[in-house]
Design a protein around this nucleic acid. Structure first.
Lengths: 203, 203
DNA sequence: TTTAAATTTGACCGTTTGGTTAAACTAATA
DNA sequence: TATTAGTTTAACCAAACGGTCAAATTTAAA
């Protein structure tokens, strides 16, 4: 099935994702989604009842991607430092493939925090896994004593921030050289784990 | 001069900032700004010609705040680790007072990256100060060998990220307890420098 | 082939939007 | 007081918006 023969519903979802992620809920015009999908505007309402409903379909998928799925690696019994390396590498790789997801999800979530709560519960979101994994490591005195919540948020911040601030960083530090910036992001797959492990390992 | 007697132009700017920062450029209605300022909508166009112009006035100030002013502390000859402590403490304090600035600036910058470049040049934005300060430290072998760009971005990410992801973190980690979350943010003023210094100090 | 259901279209609608305008009001100057 | 420039208001406008609808077209079952 070639890309041009995709089911209409799929074409709409793809187009909507592209436009919503680029322009946000308010900045998006239904007509623009229709154009992007190469279909009539009425079809949007035929398949999804309203702009809000279409947005939610797109947002839910984006949000699901944004929340790292780490259960497998983290719950296994590989060494803790290796888990950090895997997490960072996996998450940054995902962000490279979906560079606009963070700013999109975080912006919409800040605009409407209420929706988040119910949605998170509907997902099997289990952040305790990461935290508990770190706590066990502290108890066993294999890393220094650090609040695992700070540790996890530090890690997430270092992974995600460059994608949100990309235009600033690219402009200020890399003279708008896209290649140099992306190369820098690749480096971070190794730099971030190194930075974290350096900080929390026992001396 | 009481708050109620502020000049109209100031009232507009305050109201516009409040609404723009909360809802973004597209999500903001001129009428809502007028209501917030307690004036007639036409006055907005009397003082600022268009929505775009009014937005730019608000955005420029927000962006100025977002870019840390650190020249003084960083350029002085206090110890490098102390500089990190001052930077983080100062920046997080500013973010506590303006918690919506990051998501606002970063969202609008991603929507229109072009505007950024010319604007940054008009400002006396000098990121090299921070980078050079770190490089000197490395040359003198007082901290481990680390790319200063990663170091700076790590620091910024850890400071800013919690404010952008606040609804998620607050919901997932703190059961929507605002006080607990804000207390956690206060902790980070000390935790982040500790985390960084731990990572880059020579052993 | 006929028929009926599903899909797609263009024309249309009511509302909301940013923006305009002319008139009213205010305050300072002469 | 008369005049004038600066300020504020209500009424209004054209364009853009999300959404509807009936007709046209396609698809597939009978």
């Amino acid at each position: 099935m070639s890309k041009i023969d995709l089911k209409t519903e799929t074409k709409i979802l793809n187009a909507a994702k592209k436009v919503f992620v680029r322009k946000g809920l308010d900045g998006t015009r239904m007509q623009e989604i229709a154009d992007e999908a190469g279909i009539n505007k009425s079809l949007l309402h035929y398949y999804f009842r309203s702009k809000e409903k279409l947005f939610e379909a797109v947002f839910n998928e984006a949000f699901r991607q944004f929340i790292p799925k780490v259960s497998e690696a983290i719950e296994s019994d590989i060494p803790f430092f290796r888990k950090i390396e895997i997490f960072v590498d996996t998450y940054i790789s995902m962000l490279i493939n979906n560079p606009h997801i963070p700013i999109f999800v975080l912006h919409e979530i800040n605009r409407n925090p209420d929706k988040l709560i119910s949605f998170m519960q509907s997902q099997g979101l289990r952040p305790e896994i990461l935290l508990k994994s770190a706590m066990k490591e502290i108890e066993q005195k294999r890393i220094i004593n650090i609040d695992p919540r700070h540790l996890v948020i530090n890690m997430l911040g270092m992974c995600i921030f460059p994608f949100i601030a990309k235009p600033i960083l690219k402009g200020v530090i890399f003279n708008n050289n896209e290649k140099a910036f992306m190369n820098f992001i690749q480096e971070r797959k190794k730099e971030i784990p190194k930075f974290i492990i350096n900080s929390i390992k026992k001396k």
